[in-house]
Amino acid sequence: MNRLNQLFVSKKDNLLSIYYTAGYPALNTTVDIAEALEKAGVDFLEVGFPYSDPVADGPTIQHSSEQALENGMTLNVLFEELAELRKRVTIPILLMGYFNPIVQYGIEKFCKKAAELGVDGIIVPDLPMYEYEALYSAHFINNNLSNIFLVTPQTSEARIRKIDALSNSFIYLLSSSSITGGSLQLTNNIEDYYKRVKAMELKNPTIIGFGISDRATFTKACEYANGAIVGSKFVKLLGEEDYMGKIPGFVESIRS
């Protein structure tokens, strides 16, 4: 059991996760931000590593990625910054990013290094189920890293079942078919989708992401899932003056 599994055993509702891009707004902030978020009460974190062509992301995260790359962020640099992670942070951490930088780093080497530094799971939006299962899953499993799959309102029930079988920590429910940075829409369709997934009684917990930006959307998402993820809204905060000082207030504004 890794930290993620332990978290989901001990806590089943209103889980809050925050996404941010490593290297934004500056290098050497990754662990500081993680520590501040843990202190503010966040349950787990997603640390993005930047990519030049982030097709699943909207303008906010695109911009943070570009800035991070300009600052010199790479996987090597990120792993250096994470060397002191587990001395200062205890909550579960996922790394999130696109597949090509991982391929260049070496998939096996990447999984090993991440596990060594105390990373608990990986989210790679452009690594779909077939390629993961047939070609790469052994490296993840051997290093006790959870791979998180995404599910959208268009994902069929059969495919969700398969994803549930392949997952071992949680499933990431997208609030709509969209890129990051939109706003949560609660049309009938979407409610039906959440209800449909909830009624499937999956073995893995579900966490809703994309478009969660405030207390209202967070609370709504938690009606249907075990928790929710805030991304673009927090990345915007990191672009402001004195963002470190504002972190407790930000978390408070979403879940007190």
Partner: peptide
């Protein structure tokens, strides 16, 4: 049948594009 030419090809797409 999986879209590969030897080592190359496949469909490395986010789930949003899967359908």
């Amino acid at each position: 049948e999986h879209g590969y030419y030897g080592d190359f090809g496949g469909a490395y797409i986010p789930e949003m594009l899967y359908p």
